[in-house]
Simulated scan of single mutants.
Amino acid sequence: MEEQELSPEDARTLRFLRILVFVLTATMIAGMALLIVLFWLRFSGREAAPTEMLSLPQAFELPAGETPAAVTRAKEFWVVVADDGTVHFFAPEGGAPIRSLDAPE
Protein backbone atom coordinates (compact mmCIF):
# COMPACT_ATOMS: atom_id res chain seq x y z
CA MET A 1 0.00 0.00 0.00
CA GLU A 2 1.38 3.38 -0.95
CA GLU A 3 1.54 6.28 1.43
CA GLN A 4 -0.25 9.39 0.33
CA GLU A 5 1.14 12.80 0.95
CA LEU A 6 -0.88 15.07 3.19
CA SER A 7 -2.31 18.26 1.89
CA PRO A 8 -1.13 21.43 3.66
CA GLU A 9 -4.56 21.75 5.31
CA ASP A 10 -4.44 18.18 6.63
CA ALA A 11 -0.87 18.71 7.90
CA ARG A 12 -1.99 21.81 9.84
CA THR A 13 -4.95 19.91 11.30
CA LEU A 14 -2.72 17.01 12.30
CA ARG A 15 -0.20 19.38 13.91
CA PHE A 16 -3.05 21.07 15.82
CA LEU A 17 -4.34 17.71 17.07
CA ARG A 18 -0.85 16.68 18.21
CA ILE A 19 -0.49 19.91 20.19
CA LEU A 20 -3.97 19.51 21.62
CA VAL A 21 -3.27 15.94 22.78
CA PHE A 22 0.04 17.06 24.32
CA VAL A 23 -1.62 19.95 26.21
CA LEU A 24 -4.45 17.75 27.47
CA THR A 25 -2.00 15.07 28.60
CA ALA A 26 0.14 17.64 30.42
CA THR A 27 -2.98 19.08 32.09
CA MET A 28 -4.09 15.65 33.29
CA ILE A 29 -0.61 14.85 34.66
CA ALA A 30 -0.46 18.22 36.46
CA GLY A 31 -3.96 17.68 37.87
CA MET A 32 -3.09 14.23 39.20
CA ALA A 33 0.12 15.57 40.75
CA LEU A 34 -1.86 18.36 42.41
CA LEU A 35 -4.39 15.87 43.82
CA ILE A 36 -1.59 13.69 45.19
CA VAL A 37 0.07 16.69 46.85
CA LEU A 38 -3.23 17.86 48.34
CA PHE A 39 -4.01 14.41 49.73
CA TRP A 40 -0.50 14.15 51.15
CA LEU A 41 -0.78 17.55 52.84
CA ARG A 42 -4.24 16.78 54.21
CA PHE A 43 -3.52 13.30 55.52
CA SER A 44 0.18 13.51 56.37
CA GLY A 45 -0.56 13.31 60.09
CA ARG A 46 0.69 16.75 60.96
CA GLU A 47 -1.19 18.39 63.77
CA ALA A 48 -3.65 21.05 62.76
CA ALA A 49 -3.65 24.40 64.51
CA PRO A 50 -5.35 24.11 67.88
CA THR A 51 -8.95 25.22 67.80
CA GLU A 52 -10.81 26.93 70.56
CA MET A 53 -12.71 24.44 72.64
CA LEU A 54 -16.44 24.93 72.93
CA SER A 55 -17.38 25.23 76.59
CA LEU A 56 -20.89 24.16 77.45
CA PRO A 57 -22.73 25.68 80.41
CA GLN A 58 -23.58 23.46 83.35
CA ALA A 59 -27.34 23.61 82.69
CA PHE A 60 -30.10 25.34 80.78
CA GLU A 61 -33.18 25.91 82.93
CA LEU A 62 -36.11 25.31 80.61
CA PRO A 63 -39.69 25.94 81.73
CA ALA A 64 -41.48 22.90 83.15
CA GLY A 65 -42.66 20.37 80.57
CA GLU A 66 -40.44 21.58 77.71
CA THR A 67 -37.89 19.35 76.06
CA PRO A 68 -35.01 20.79 74.01
CA ALA A 69 -35.16 19.96 70.30
CA ALA A 70 -32.12 21.98 69.15
CA VAL A 71 -29.26 23.89 70.76
CA THR A 72 -27.22 26.51 68.91
CA ARG A 73 -24.26 28.62 69.99
CA ALA A 74 -24.10 32.24 68.83
CA LYS A 75 -21.28 34.68 69.61
CA GLU A 76 -22.83 36.12 72.74
CA PHE A 77 -25.62 33.71 73.71
CA TRP A 78 -27.06 30.21 73.42
CA VAL A 79 -30.33 29.46 71.62
CA VAL A 80 -32.45 26.50 72.69
CA VAL A 81 -35.50 25.54 70.65
CA ALA A 82 -38.05 23.50 72.57
CA ASP A 83 -39.99 20.66 70.96
CA ASP A 84 -43.12 22.85 70.85
CA GLY A 85 -41.26 25.51 68.81
CA THR A 86 -40.61 27.99 71.63
CA VAL A 87 -37.20 29.68 71.30
CA HIS A 88 -35.21 30.50 74.45
CA PHE A 89 -32.10 32.68 74.59
CA PHE A 90 -29.54 31.99 77.33
CA ALA A 91 -26.47 33.82 78.60
CA PRO A 92 -23.11 32.14 77.80
CA GLU A 93 -22.97 30.66 81.29
CA GLY A 94 -26.45 29.07 81.01
CA GLY A 95 -29.02 29.28 83.77
CA ALA A 96 -32.49 30.75 83.23
CA PRO A 97 -33.51 32.15 79.81
CA ILE A 98 -32.79 35.84 79.28
CA ARG A 99 -35.49 36.02 76.60
CA SER A 100 -38.10 33.67 75.13
CA LEU A 101 -40.14 33.74 71.95
CA ASP A 102 -43.36 31.76 71.60
CA ALA A 103 -43.81 29.42 68.68
CA PRO A 104 -45.55 30.94 65.65
CA GLU A 105 -49.07 29.78 65.06
Rank of each mutant, 00 (worst) to 15 (best):
F77R: 11
V79E: 11
D84K: 07
M32N: 10
L6Y: 07
M53R: 13
L35N: 14
E66M: 13
T13G: 02
G65L: 00
L24Q: 14
P97C: 06
D84M: 01
E9W: 02
E3T: 08
M28W: 10
T27S: 15
V21R: 15
L62Y: 00
T51N: 00
D83P: 01
R18S: 06
P50L: 13
T13I: 13
A64G: 13
E76H: 09
E66A: 07
F77I: 00
Q4P: 02
P50Q: 12
P92T: 11
M32F: 11
G85F: 01
E47H: 05
L62T: 03
D84N: 15
P68M: 02
V79P: 00
V81F: 04
L24N: 15
A49R: 09
L35E: 10
L24F: 12
F90R: 01
A74W: 08
M32H: 09
E47W: 06
E9Y: 00
V37F: 11
A74G: 07
A11T: 10
P50S: 11
V71R: 04
E52Q: 14
A91D: 14
E5T: 06
M53V: 15
A26G: 02
V80Q: 00
P57I: 01
G94Q: 02
V81G: 06
T25I: 00
K75N: 10
G45I: 01
F60T: 06
A33T: 09
L6D: 06
A64D: 12
L56R: 06
G95W: 03
F60R: 07
L20C: 07
A59I: 03
P57A: 03
V23F: 02
F16W: 14
Q4C: 08
M32Y: 12
F39I: 05
T13H: 12
A82V: 03
T13S: 14
P50D: 10
F89R: 15
W78I: 00
V37C: 11
P50T: 13
L17M: 09
E9K: 05
G45S: 07
F89S: 03
I19W: 06
K75W: 06
F77T: 04
P63V: 04
R42Q: 12
W78A: 03
L35Y: 07
T13N: 12
D10K: 14
F43P: 01
M53H: 09
V21N: 05
L41V: 04
R46K: 14
Q58Y: 00
D84Y: 02
E76N: 12
E66R: 09
W40T: 11
R15K: 15
E66I: 05
E93P: 05
M32R: 10
A70I: 07
S44A: 10
F77K: 08
A33N: 08
M28I: 13
T25D: 04
M28H: 14
G31H: 05
Q4E: 10
